[in-house]
Design a protein around this nucleic acid. Sequence first.
DNA 1: CGTCTTTGACCGGCGC
DNA 2: GCGCCGGTCAAAGACG
Length: 332
Amino acid sequence: MDYSTCVDTSLSINLTAVNPSRHIDETPESGTHEHLFPILNRKSQYDQGDFVGLEGKLAEKQEVNLLVEELNRVIFENRRLTEMLTIVREKYNALQSHFMDLTSNKSDSELVRLGKRKADDEDCGYYICTNNEDAENSCGTKEGSCKMPKESFKTNTSRVCVKTDYESVKSLTVKDGHRWRKYGQKVTRDNSSPRAYYKCSFAPSCPVKKKVQRSAEDQSVLVATYVGEHNHHHHPFQAELSLSTNQCVKPGSIPCSTSLTSSSSTKTLDFIKPGLCGIAKNSTTDIEAPVHEQFFLQQIGSSMTRDSSFMRSGLTKVINPGRTLEQNGIEY
DNA sequence: CGTCTTTGACCGGCGC
DNA sequence: GCGCCGGTCAAAGACG
């Protein structure tokens, strides 16, 4: 995927935010140069001979100087915009490569860590599901060394890793917009911290289950594994997700770090920069997108608004968490 | 009183 | 067949 083209085609440029130091009344029609029109009109009047003599010529010279000055300023601003676009493009590419690195590292380490029992196989199968090429290379050729779970292809399984605040880690809760009922808790062999089992309580017939456990590597990271798909709309999503994003901005809380994978694709993000988590909170919510994808979009929005230099650049990408990544023009 | 959490018991799959 | 382990059940308690 060519991210440079993605930036070029999908980003909308807000020129009013590009140069905040500029006087507002200087350019009332931001993004255009209509404010130059009176000067130009006057110049044409000079040409028509409305003003004659030395006085007129002096005035004309001043106007020309003004025009040249304005032209230089526009050229300079244009250059600045081009530079900013380049920077944004580079950041986009850097983020993408970092994303790829994390994805491959995580997959590798998971493969090494995998044990022999069913639950471990689920992880492996999950890895297989997410990455067809790797599946053929690493598992498919080993003939049973990494058994495929019977359920993994039938059920829609996704995993979300959330670095969150102390309270959430302590209570093993991942606020993802759905209502969950805890029905069990177990200490597993490969991880000293307990694993909590949740069922979707919004609809009694909803088959979706969720497992939440602290990461063995990083105790501040919660790993939530979703199994199945919701068979209902989830209206409380926005409100609860707002709470979840508020977690991120809570004073003293740990900046969000999110990695997300699903059975149809692998998505991993690591948003290191602290700050706001705001943009998605204000976005409209459509209940059609899968919750983990919406969560992912929330994090993208958060990461973008968190990057102060990105915000200063005046480039805005409108992300609708109610739409799929593709609908938002994001490839991953 | 309804909902949710906790927690010990139970079940079934898997490896030895 | 036995033991281990992950997943689930269900009764009891907590909470608003």
